[in-house]
Design a protein around this nucleic acid. Structure first.
Length: 575
RNA sequence: GCACCCAUAGCUCAGCUGGAUAGAGUGUCGCCCUCCGAAGGCGAAGGUCGUAGGUUCGAAUCCUACUGGGUGCGCCA
């Protein structure tokens, strides 16, 4: 339980006591009562809206309720002061012992500090990256990979049972294109001149795949028609591409639990089974769709297709699952795939897509809602574009020219830690500027560096103290009592609550912002030591005070390390 | 035409799911910098939270309608 939740319990039992005394009427709804850090620290350590929430049902003035509640709460040893403010807020100031207790707890729990039980062991599946197996990952995929991975870690820390999953789109036309492209490289490896027409992948990365194919099969496909080699090369090339992608992900430290093949859904009855489930629910029918208004395709003709009645589950129009020639649309295997996820017993599903899949969200939610009878929520997180630049120069992507910046390029330029952290310094649904020069800068406006610097600085002090034979010992915590020091401890106390909020909202970027705040406050306290020597962490003639202060900064380092762990960034001890 | 996302300080962005006087970095201006670890520190100015309504004790946050930007819209996945 977080400190905020503990104090909330205290508030609730104070209310119960007031009810028992007859000061407040019984049967009050207390769900809306919150205990939060106030926006302005000058207001105290925590604030509760209890009086305002209870005012109406209790038929009393908020400030009057706040007054009696304040008296009750002030009797608690942990609460030093309870003041009524504004329209009826109750501002609480906690005793120094509470904050010193937080520090001791962090030291005791170590890397378990911040772990939470909010997930209650619920099984959640996070699907991310899922790039087509037709080439190396590029910057866009990088953001999805980092976001999905951090979200998965965040949920794990919050007590969920997390599965990280990659859906391999190896069942559609694009892998045929891949196979044909590899065939061209294969012919090239045999010394032939080849031309890459539109509709093939001209990228250099296929050269070695063509060579590898030659090494494997010799010249048996040369001069043969597609029917002799397409299936085999498709298989061969897809595997090579997945090797490539796995290697790319490894550069970022991303490891999937499950790679799920789209192809495995075809010819195995899985698609038919999933659609059968929808059919049994009366959600599949033959029909003709209206053309989209405004932007009508040139060659629009009304066609009868097999449709999924997604409008019954919140979509705008029904969606085709089968083309007019009887082949499945891409939506059909996706339905089957999500049916499979539901069948595997997940309590929650999360899909991380690129922003260009925005139009796909409603139908996917509709499908999951229908397949699980509303039991399993699906959250789709869209990651917006990454604008990669070096200073004023924009590093452009062009598929036609074959010049696209790959994940490997980015990691090579700035390293995995900087890549990961920076990709998480923006909400997933906001576009991201990634300046490869700026993210490596060593200054305060570079959050990655600033957070790492705080961690390194702390370890530097710890090393220095250790040389003098001083270590952090909670026995000496009573020497930590300056308001500035306790304020830093209070910031640390926010961490577990932040994790719960970020996990519930599926927003890992909050962790990055918190770490920047925490690092700022640590650096500020450090600087304050310049003017006020008693705040310096290393006190020349006072080992016990030093030891107490070491506890405080050790706790900061632990929280930074834990937070960075969620983001997948390695904390450094020196720089 | 429709759907989804976005709009907050000159610039880049936070804002804890409805709370108090809306915050940070950068930029501008003014002081300070013989300081455990240098790559700075303190302070000031800077806002009708895109516009107009609505919901209520209370709105940047929820609802509606507009404006502007992005993404997408039946045999591409």
């Amino acid at each position: 339980m977080t400190l905020f939740a503990e104090i909330r319990e205290t508030v609730l039992s104070a209310i119960d006591a007031l009810v028992a005394e007859g000061t407040l009427p019984g049967g009050l709804e207390t769900r809306a009562i919150t205990v939060e850090p106030p926006r302005d620290a000058a207001h105290g350590d925590m604030a509760t809206n209890a009086a305002m929430v209870l005012a109406k049902p209790a038929a009393a003035k908020p400030r009057d309720i706040a007054e009696v509640l304040a008296t009750k709460l002030a009797a608690d040893p942990r609460i030093e002061a309870a003041d009524v403010a504004g329209p009826g807020f109750l501002n609480l100031r906690l005793s120094g012992d509470v904050w010193r207790g937080v520090i001791a707890r962090v030291l005791h729990e170590g890397d378990a500090f911040g772990r939470s039980a909010t997930g209650e062991g619920r099984r959640v599946n996070v699907e991310y990256v899922s790039a087509n197996p037709t080439g190396p990952l590029h910057v866009g995929h990088t953001r999805g990979a980092v976001f999905g991975d951090a979200l998965a870690s965040l949920l794990d820390v919050a007590g969920y049972d997390v599965t990280r999953e990659y859906y391999i789109n190896d069942g559609g036309a694009q892998v045929d294109v891949l196979a044909r492209s590899v065939y061209l490289r294969y012919l090239e490896a045999h010394g032939q001149e080849v031309a890459f027409e539109d509709g093939t992948y001209p990228g250099d990365y296929l050269i070695e795949v063509g060579q590898a194919l030659k090494d494997k099969v010799g010249d048996q496909f040369v001069g043969k028609g597609e029917q002799f080699w397409l299936a085999e090369i498709r298989e061969f090339a897809t595997e090579k591409m997945m090797d490539l992608i796995r290697a790319d992900l490894a550069l970022l430290g991303v490891e999937m639990d499950v790679f799920y093949s789209e192809k495995s859904l075809y010819g195995t009855g899985r698609i038919e089974e999933a659609l059968g489930d929808l059919r049994d629910k009366g959600l599949i029918y033959e029909g003709v769709l209206e053309p989209p208004k405004g932007k009508k395709p040139e060659d629009w003709e009304p066609r009868e297709q097999t449709l999924f009645k997604s409008t019954e589950h919140g979509d705008d129009v029904d969606r085709p699952v089968m083309k007019s020639d009887g082949a499945w649309t891409y939506f059909a295997p996706d339905i089957a795939y999500h049916f499979d996820k539901v069948s595997r017993g997940f309590d929650e599903l999360i899909d991380v897509f690129g922003a260009d899949h925005g139009g796909y969200v409603k139908r996917m939610k509709a499908a999951v809602s229908a397949l699980s009878d509303g039991r399993v929520p699906l959250d789709v997180k869209l990651t917006q574009l990454v604008k990669l630049r070096r200073g004023d120069e924009e590093l452009k992507m062009s598929k036609r020219a074959g010049t696209f910046v790959t994940l490997a390029d980015v990691v090579e330029m700035v390293g995995p830690d900087v890549t990961r952290f920076h990709m998480l310094t923006r909400k997933n649904d906001a576009p991201l500027d990634f300046d490869v020069d700026k993210v490596c800068e060593q200054s305060k406006d570079n959050p990655v560096w600033y957070v790492q610097y705080a961690h390194a600085r702390i370890h530097s002090v710890l090393r220095k103290a250790a040389e003098a034979g001083i270590t952090p010992d909670p026995e000496n915590l009573n020497t930590v009592n300056d308001p500035a020091e306790l304020a830093l401890a209070a910031k640390i106390a926010e961490y577990p609550r932040l994790i719960e909020i970020a996990a519930t909202a599926h927003e890992p970027h909050r962790v990055a912002f918190y770490l920047y705040d925490l690092a700022s406050e640590f650096h500020a306290l450090w600087n304050k030591g310049n003017a006020e020597p008693h705040l310096r962490f290393f006190q020349e003639d006072d080992p016990s005070a030093t030891s107490g202060k070491l506890c405080l900064i050790s706790a900061v380092a632990i929280v930074i390390s834990n937070g960075l762990g969620i983001l997948g960034v390695t904390p450094v001890d020196q720089m």
